[in-house]
Design a protein around this nucleic acid. Structure first.
Length: 479
RNA sequence: CGCGGAGUAGAGAAAUGGUAUCUCGGGAGGCUCAUAACCUCCAGAAGUUGGUUCGAUUCCAACCUCCGCAACCA
């Protein structure tokens, strides 16, 4: 019996547009889910939206709508990715879902009962110019960058704190025992260094009178939970943890292999904060945290609205199709490092590897096999264990598959069955049988990556007919 | 001396203590099954300065340049 496989993306904060970075994260999660299913494992693939907190609260005020209306609209944009990117998740959880709210409160209560939550005075820095609290990271030279001439007010309030520092040793032990807990290793080193430097308890509540858009703290009506404490619990609440039926939680979290994928900005939250929270609640830790890099523009600058250099997944999918974007983020977005992105690069990769690569190869093989009357008699063996997706090497697996495509192209040139057919029909047919088998195998490996293309090639082989319309049509570059 | 990462053909990437590989782009040729696709060949690269070594792109040191993080962030 193979171990069940649990994969979750982060829950993007609903106050934003889906961008290429998140598209990469969730496509990779989807590919892993499909790949593990292909390997006969039971899979639970989780995603959703993170919907509480101050930013939502303020934005809703600004728009003159309720926070609930705002998050209802926002979560639809992320839900739509299922169709845009062809994703097959098992649950799209919203942190405003009633079962999640109940689970988050239960999680709080357990941590509290175990002695890991306490109340303490908390100092905040408040800029009277902005009329907002400021984090240290918002400040420049200890002053608000927008109002550097105004002094910051120090305000005190009582907050609940999570006793994260109690888990410093346990976290170190976790990192020692699970030697590849965080991938890649340089990110693992980063978080180890962070924890070894000493961790501080963090605030996990906000005063309701100041910011009411959060999950109520159990037993204290004056406070709501800080958004991170609530949101991270989604990874288990989605499985029914804390509900009447914990069977999915037992199967996929307790009894399964738990993999989380996130961007590098989430390293700390996923691999240290959340792990500490799990320890506090007495729940098993995750098994692996995969950390992606960022996607920047062609000049290496962060994509942002203010720079006007944002390229969204929607426009790419509209022009090139979901499979093309899925292909691109797996092969040309670096497994771990930051990557640059431009429409030119994308177009180039599409033309070279999809149009001229797998698309053209499919046509040349099926053109010959159908006209020579050679059909695939039986399905060849596929060695699924060779896939590098087992070890989360997206780029490597893609290169491996495209090497096979190149070999098939070269075989056609070298053996020239289109010439042979005139002088040695049997030999030519033998070549075609080999090529059909090769195409079948390649296609099998492509299945988790490009589900739509996989289906088309499968039909083409079965019917022994080249696709009526090209798998990947030639497209003029523009826009 | 806050912590960390990265510098490889025109562009993007990879591997490696001993001939530096791949993709795109440039040049030449071949082929005609294929979506002007495919195949072959050619030109073109290790930031700087030292050190270790028979030999360094690889290991070490310094410097230069770029980029993250520093408790909100894919």
């Amino acid at each position: 019996m193979k171990k069940p496989f649990y994969i979750t993306s982060t829950l993007p904060y609903v106050n934003g547009e889906p961008h290429l970075g998140f598209a990469t994260e969730i496509i990779r999660a989807d590919v892993l889910a499909r790949h593990r299913r292909q390997n006969d494992r039971e899979v639970f693939f989780n995603t959703g939206t993170d919907e509480h907190g101050q930013k939502i609260f303020l934005k809703a005020q600004e728009l003159g709508i309720t926070p609930q209306e705002l998050v209802d609209q926002g979560s639809e944009k992320f839900k739509a990715l299922a169709e845009t990117l062809n994703l097959g998740w098992d649950r799209f959880i919203r942190t405003t879902d009633t079962d999640h709210v109940a689970a988050a409160q239960k999680f709080w209560t357990i941590c509290d009962n175990n002695g890991y939550i306490y109340k303490k005075e908390y100092q905040t820095k408040y800029c009277v110019g902005c009329e907002l609290e400021k984090q240290d990271s918002d400040l420049e030279d200890g002053a608000c960058p927008i109002h550097p001439d105004k002094d910051l007010e120090i305000r005190e309030e009582e907050n609940y704190f999570f006793k994260w520092s109690a888990f410093e040793e346990q976290l170190k032990t976790l990192y020692t025992e699970q030697s590849s807990f965080v991938k890649p290793s340089f990110r693992f080193n980063e978080i180890k260094g962070f924890v070894e430097a000493g961790i501080r308890d963090f605030s996990i509540s906000r005063l309701r009178e100041k910011m009411s858009w959060g999950i109520p703290v159990p037993g204290d009506e004056d406070h709501v939970m800080y958004v991170w404490f609530d949101a991270l619990v989604d990874y288990i609440s989605t499985l029914g943890w804390g509900s009447d039926d914990e069977s999915l939680f037992d199967k996929f979290w307790q009894g399964g292999e738990v993999v989380q994928i996130c961007g590098k900005d989430n390293l700390r939250q996923q691999s240290a904060m959340w792990q500490g929270m799990l320890m506090a609640a007495g729940i098993k830790n995750s098994d692996k945290i995969l950390i992606n890099g960022f996607i920047n523009d062609a000049d290496g600058r962060k994509m942002s609205k203010s720079l006007g250099n944002v390229i969204g997944p929607d426009e790419l999918v509209e022009k090139y199709g979901a499979d093309a974007l899925r292909y691109y983020v797996l092969r040309h977005v670096n497994n771990h490092e930051d990557s640059s992105f431009s429409k030119e690069q994308f177009h180039e990769a599409y033309m070279a590897n999809l149009v001229n690569g797998i698309g053209n190869l499919t046509n040349r093989i099926l053109q010959m096999s159908s006209s020579y009357g050679v059909k695939l008699e039986s399905e060849p063996a596929v060695h699924l264990e060779e896939s590098l997706f087992h070890s989360y090497d997206f780029n490597g697996e893609m290169d491996r598959i495209w090497r096979m495509i190149g070999e098939a192209d070269q075989f056609i040139t070298d053996e020239a069955p289109f010439k042979k057919i005139k002088v040695d029909e049997d030999a030519a047919k033998e070549d075609l049988r080999y090529l059909l088998e090769k195409l079948f195998v390649i296609n099998y490996y492509l299945a988790p990556i490009m589900p739509e293309t996989y289906g088309k090639i499968r039909v083409a082989i079965e019917e022994n007919q080249k696709p009526e319309t090209p798998l990947f049509p030639r497209i003029e570059f523009g826009g």
